[in-house]
Amino acid sequence: MHFEYQIEGGNFTRAGFASSEIKKKLKQLNVDLGIVKRTVVATYEAEVNVVAHAYSGTIYVDFDEEKVVIKLVDEGPGIPDIEKAMTEGFSTASSTVREMGFGAGMGLPNMKKNADDLQVSSEVGKGTTVQITMFFQKPDNDK
C-alpha cells in the first residue's frame, strides 16, 4: 500500500493531519498499539519539523506485511550539520515555532528514540529527507 500527503511550510493549523491519517491506517491494520504510538510520535515530530523549517514537503508512506516506511521529503533550507541537529537541546526554531510548544531541540532525538530505523540526509539550500522505518513484529521492549 502506498499513500502520499502534502505538507505546507508554516501552516501550523494543519500540522499533524498526515500523522493522524497514518495513525488511523495503522490501527485499521491492527498494528500493536505500542508500535502505532512510536510510529506516529516519530512521524508527527518530523511533520512538525517540515512545517517549522521548510517551504513545503511530501510524505511518502509504504506499508507491507512486515513494516511501514515513512519518508518525508522537504524543500527548504536544509541542515548544515546533521550531527549537531541530532543533539538534544540544539534548535534553530523561530519564536513562532516555540510559541506553538515546539523548538526545544528535542524533535530529531525523539524521532531516533521512537523509530526502529531513522535516516536523515540533507542538502543546504535544497532540503531535507527523513526516513522512518518501523517493523510490526519487532518486540517493543527495547524502545
Binding site: A15, G16, S19, V41, M100, G101, F102, A104
Partner: peptide, 29 residues
C-alpha cells in the same frame, strides 16, 4: 509539547496553558 511527546505512558492527564491545535494533535499522537 516536545516534552509531552517523550512520555511513554498511556492515559496520562495533560495539564497545560497552551491552547492551540498542536496541543490536541500532541494528545492524539
Amino acid at each position: 509539547m516536545s516534552d509531552v511527546l517523550t512520555l511513554k505512558e498511556d492515559n496520562v492527564l495533560l495539564i497545560t496553558g497552551l491552547a492551540n491545535m498542536q496541543t490536541l494533535r500532541t494528545a492524539e499522537m
